[in-house]
Amino acid sequence: MLKLVGVNKRLGEFHLRDIDLAVLPGEYFVILGPTGSGKTVLLETIAGMYPPDAGRIFFAGKEITCLPPEERRIGFVYQDYALFPHLDVRQNILFGLKSRKIPAAAREGKLGEVVQLLGIGHLLARNPSTLSGGEQQRVALARALVTEPQIFLLDEPLSALDPRTREGFQRELQRIHRATGTLTVHVTHDFAEAAFLADRIAVMQRGRLVQVGSPEEIFYRPSSLFTARFVGLRNVFAGEVLEAKGHRLFRAGRLELAVETGFTGPVGCVLHPEHLQLSPTPTGGTTCLPGRVTAVYRRRFYLEVMVDAGEELVLWIPPAGHEHGFHRPPQVGEKVWCVIPPAAVHLFPRSED
């Protein structure tokens, strides 16, 4: 296990604040956040490039807070690959082993293993400047893996790749992790990438970890407006829960809906569009809001319907309608009812706007 306890680090105007984190053995852990949130600083602090101003770092039950980087058995891959331009691929991969004075025969054995794992044997005599982005990234991974690190740190490793190559490389990283079982910490600003790769995700904002959980927990049960908006959720509202005639009511702007919750006061709310339903007439037994269709967009497997129901709501419905009395796609300008079952509503205490 990799464990950080109360880690703080100030660099100029930036402050890494009170980081408590435990990454499990063999876990693929992703740190997700926007540019400037401190993801790379946290990674470099784990690697020993920055000593923390406060707090402690442990790995496998031993404290490594003050260990120099070369004694931490860490493999680090940056987004710009950081290959040595004056060395060919073979020399780049072997650089770390040579610096550790590993005997030549052992170096060749390790080289053969990592080359086979990554399928780059045909590149060994090439210069980095002649390689594609995907090939350079494979070489950078090989250089980190050949030293058999106990911790594998990846800093935005796919950000410089084109979309098609990036998608293929996500599968490659997944395959490598399954083959090696190395504890991996990967930072990115891309939720889709994080959701594909991660066992768990930590969301980072302004130097703090604001939520840690599985990809499903982060997406379906965000704990803040920041997380909900950053991962691309629709129907995110800042409002409040009020008592009204023995019932609780969520209000945000012109939107009002009855809710079952233990919260009162300022809250955030997410209405998941795939769980909302559309009806041409009012329905009983659940929250049902009148509205008017303002736009309909045909997506690959569903219709995205925009409805003015006091505030704009986004609904994802089957392409041909076929729900709650609809036998055709809804039309712009049509009066409709938005059915909001309890499963569609996620509320959380609000501490920021």
Rank of each mutant, 00 (worst) to 15 (best):
G133I: 08
D88I: 08
L145G: 04
R229G: 01
G168T: 06
L131F: 07
L271T: 01
H275M: 13
R175C: 12
L257K: 02
G246Q: 10
E311M: 03
D308R: 12
L276K: 00
G325F: 10
E172T: 12
L257A: 11
P149Y: 00
D162M: 07
I64H: 01
G207R: 02
R206N: 14
R90Q: 09
D308K: 11
R164G: 13
G96W: 04
F95Y: 14
T35L: 13
A309T: 02
V305G: 05
A320E: 15
P330A: 11
T184A: 12
L43S: 10
F226T: 02
Q91N: 14
V187I: 09
E217G: 14
A125I: 07
P349I: 06
A47V: 09
S214W: 08
V139S: 03
P215G: 11
H346L: 06
L315P: 00
A228V: 03
Q277H: 09
S223Y: 11
M1E: 13
L11W: 05
E135N: 10
L67N: 00
L209I: 15
S132K: 13
P282Q: 09
G262W: 10
I46W: 03
L42W: 08
L94T: 00
V210M: 03
E108F: 08
P103V: 07
L183K: 02
W337Y: 14
G36R: 06
L289P: 01
K39W: 09
G96Y: 04
Y302T: 11
G253V: 09
E167H: 12
R208I: 01
V231T: 02
D18M: 06
A54Q: 15
Q205E: 13
A192N: 14
V30Q: 08
E71W: 14
A195T: 02
P349C: 09
T165N: 13
L289Y: 01
L225T: 05
E172L: 14
P103H: 01
E148N: 13
P85T: 02
V139W: 01
G239P: 02
F348M: 11
P69L: 07
V23H: 05
G26I: 04
G75Q: 07
V231H: 03
P103L: 05
L123Y: 00
L209R: 02
T287L: 14
R73W: 06
F230M: 04
S214A: 10
I64A: 07
L315N: 01
P163G: 06
G253P: 03
L87A: 09
L278D: 00
D155V: 06
A252E: 05
P163R: 05
L131M: 11
V236H: 04
M1T: 12
F326L: 13
P52D: 02
V332W: 05
T40P: 03
P69R: 04
E135A: 04
Q137N: 10
